[in-house]
Design a protein around this nucleic acid. Structure first.
Length: 220
DNA sequence: TGCCAGGCCGGGT
DNA sequence: ACCCGGCATGGC
């Protein structure tokens, strides 16, 4: 797939939506928040994260608490039992491996080593690990979620036969590293509204307007 | 009202 | 490798 098409999509998105800058967050917060966001709407996951933070004064306390208490604190997010267990197990592993509930040691690792470590944590898959490594450590990973996958295919950045688990390395190859933040955030922030395969109102909005000629099948 | 949400895991073929 | 069900609350 040609880089020109990618570059055009990125700059059209930036023109329309601006260049997003992620707010700085501590890596453990980011990890926990991303676990809470898995297959969950942002309103629900943000609410769950706020509840969790107010229920415990720090992660040591979260770790010491019974799973049911953690689950109760994140109930509004959905999938509470599973996520509570995963969060506690992840915190426990981190403390055991790092001697404290901190992920700052990842900064000293090679990117692939850091990725392998995060993937070894329960409840952490490629998407979650990539979010942490990109946004907390500026490592060159491009998180691929349902929106990024779906919209990338609709824009022709990925061919139709590419399966979700194959999408990330392909996108990482054709997207310039310095645009990972920008593309990811614009696609997930606005991606739910654009280029949906069904739902007529979605076809009328943003990205269709700004990248409309791609969707009409014209090759630039 | 039903469908979906910024996945991941464990089990099957 | 690939496919699939389960998880579960709130919003539109």
């Amino acid at each position: 797939m040609d880089r020109q098409r990618v570059a055009t999509c990125i700059s059209l998105l930036e023109e329309q939506y601006g260049i997003p800058y992620p707010d700085e967050r501590n890596p453990v917060d980011l990890l926990v928040m991303t676990i809470l966001s898995q297959n969950t709407s942002d309103t629900n996951s943000l609410r769950a994260f706020a509840h969790l933070k107010s229920a415990f004064c720090d992660y040591e306390e979260t770790l010491a608490a019974p799973v049911e208490a953690v689950a109760d604190s994140i109930r509004p997010g959905g999938l509470a039992e599973i996520k509570a267990r995963r969060i506690k197990e992840a915190l426990s592993r981190i403390k055991q491996d790092a001697g404290a509930i901190s992920l700052s040691f990842l900064a000293d690792m090679e990117k692939d080593e850091a990725m392998a470590y995060l993937l070894s944590l329960p409840g952490v898959g490629p998407k979650t690990a990539s979010v942490v490594l990109l946004f907390a450590f500026s490592m060159p990973f491009l998180p691929v979620d349902t929106h990024v996958y779906r919209v990338s295919r609709r824009l022709g950045l990925l061919s139709e036969d590419v399966r979700p688990e194959k999408a990330q390395p392909i996108l990482e190859r054709i997207v310039p590293v310095e645009k990972y933040h920008s593309l990811h955030l614009n696609l997930i922030t606005h991606g739910r509204l654009i280029c949906r395969t069904r739902g007529p109102k979605h076809e009328e909005c943003a990205l269709r307007n700004c990248c409309g000629y791609y969707l009409q099948g014209q090759k630039p």
